[in-house]
Write a protein that binds this DNA or RNA. Sequence first.
DNA 1: CCATTTATACTCTCCGTGAGCATAAGATGG
DNA 2: CCATCTTATGCTCACGGAGAGTATAAATGG
Lengths: 337, 337
Amino acid sequence: MWTTGTACPTPAASTATASVARSPQKTTTSASGNAITADLVAVLVAVTEGTPKIMTIAGGAALPSGPFEFSHRSLQTALRAWVETQTGHPLGYVEQLYTFADRGRSGDVKGPHSVSISYLGLTREDQVGESFEAHWSGWYDYFPWEDHRAGAPPFIAKLITPKLKAWAKSAPTPPLQRERWQRCAITFGLDERDWNEELVLQRYELLYEAGLIPEAGRAHGRDTAVVPGKPMTADHRRILATGLARLRAKIKYRPVVFELMPAEFTLLQLQRSVEALAGRLLHKQNFRRLMEQQELVEETGAMAADTVGRPAKLFRFRHGILAERAITGTKLPLSRT
Amino acid sequence: MWTTGTACPTPAASTATASVARSPQKTTTSASGNAITADLVAVLVAVTEGTPKIMTIAGGAALPSGPFEFSHRSLQTALRAWVETQTGHPLGYVEQLYTFADRGRSGDVKGPHSVSISYLGLTREDQVGESFEAHWSGWYDYFPWEDHRAGAPPFIAKLITPKLKAWAKSAPTPPLQRERWQRCAITFGLDERDWNEELVLQRYELLYEAGLIPEAGRAHGRDTAVVPGKPMTADHRRILATGLARLRAKIKYRPVVFELMPAEFTLLQLQRSVEALAGRLLHKQNFRRLMEQQELVEETGAMAADTVGRPAKLFRFRHGILAERAITGTKLPLSRT
DNA sequence: CCATTTATACTCTCCGTGAGCATAAGATGG
DNA sequence: CCATCTTATGCTCACGGAGAGTATAAATGG
């Protein structure tokens, strides 16, 4: 029935402050010093030839974000409009990720407090007009330890594991040491455990806590650029991790990959895209079987050109299936009486 | 691999406005008219003797909410502190639900814009000190069509189905009529389809669109109190639906029910709680099997007192299991090479 | 003692999933 | 033209989990 795990993501990096008044009645606050600003932050994902990418700005050091302004119908509409202005094409799938409260991002503690509302969006790289300073970066540049398609990256065993072991040992008491190490083993699939590709956020937070990535050093003044992987401004890499985790979970029960595919594609291309997102390889024959029995795709009649080996049939996504079926996702021992 | 369904919840009721500026650079906005206020809204759930409840204010017409103020470390901390002040006991599980943008809630269009950040929290009713005007209401008072523990409620077939059929027929073209009806059939499990308890939000939105609930009438000036179920202020019933949907999904892959249970409980009590949340009955023997093999509970040694029939063993939740195992949740045709 | 209620132990069947084998259909190089 | 390589595609098998049913045990109230 259930599998276990940690609770909701606790944004350790966001040093925010907030309080709900004791009054249960909603009061349209305006008098007190509660005025804040809101920003939208976007995790935009595309997959090009088996390489997952994310949209970045500032030379790849930040996620695209902008201040919240009132001229659209909803937060989501606002994000869509903004992204479409940049890309010149409609954004297929948009999903809210998380809302963070931030304090003193600009340094001064008494400065304006703000709320960051982050979104996950799916597009295709070729739809993007190269405007502004935004461009696509490989998402494994930021999380090299997340790509297990060619097996676990060697630096996990060589670099991360020993460092984590040391960090676990540095806990004050033996029980705490064991607890720490258990957490390391679970998130990174050590000690004969299986690798769980969905624990993107947990892994990032663990590395942060263990002081193995630059963002942690910033906060404590230590040199912590131990583990490979490009850092980002503020808590953007954390937001990105949240997005990747969400997407890796989502592709398992919702047909969202198709938002990342061209109109026509071969089953292998589709599989490569899923593998790119999941960071691990799939069983080809079983993947095809699944595609067929789910009736998510249909043949276009055409064949793929310019290929090595036997030419593959081209497929397209059956949009109708979205209306025909509902999400299932039942793991409860239901009774049918 | 995937099941299909609708995309993320589109808050149709929230008439909000927002826009992201073209500038990809984060600007610490303060000069322009972008100052807003933020509110926290809580969906607090408890289950008492097989009855799921939610915390309400204003005589059951609203969810507890309060303005966002800066004195805690994070949004979640703020919510916890506030709830704990009210209940006098720690709030077990807290999870962010969704952030809505609202405009002109208080009526005037030029009034303060605001953002509502909603949370789902799990407690136990007996932990609540009866303070303020907050009290517990049965959640099926607000969504009577969601309780299928004694089979589908008769008014679905007698009342809702014909009304939905009429609504579908009222679409301008036959294809649109079919599309509407298909949506009705999926969400409400009509036409031989299975009931999917997770589609709480979709059902609410459908009833809203079909003009069958009071909230829809408010917006259009029609009398739409067709379907039984207590309405709520503003979009609170929508937020509640979001929370219920999330919780019904969550209990299937995370051991969150235990947050709603007393320290010791029988397996039947546990089952009743899950059934209360899911709104449908479970297979007793399989439920026990699942509990045992997942090692989520352990015997306390004591037996339940004051019971009819054979006395049941008392169990407690094994908190350690949270650290021992990670979430699995894999439905991809993985390859183990 | 018996009926009733609940607890608890087993068994059986079906199907989804991971995995492997075999064959087909192209290209390429001798 | 044939051998070989590569990718596509069809088929089978084994295992385990999920849904369902049967049987027995342990209490209570008449």
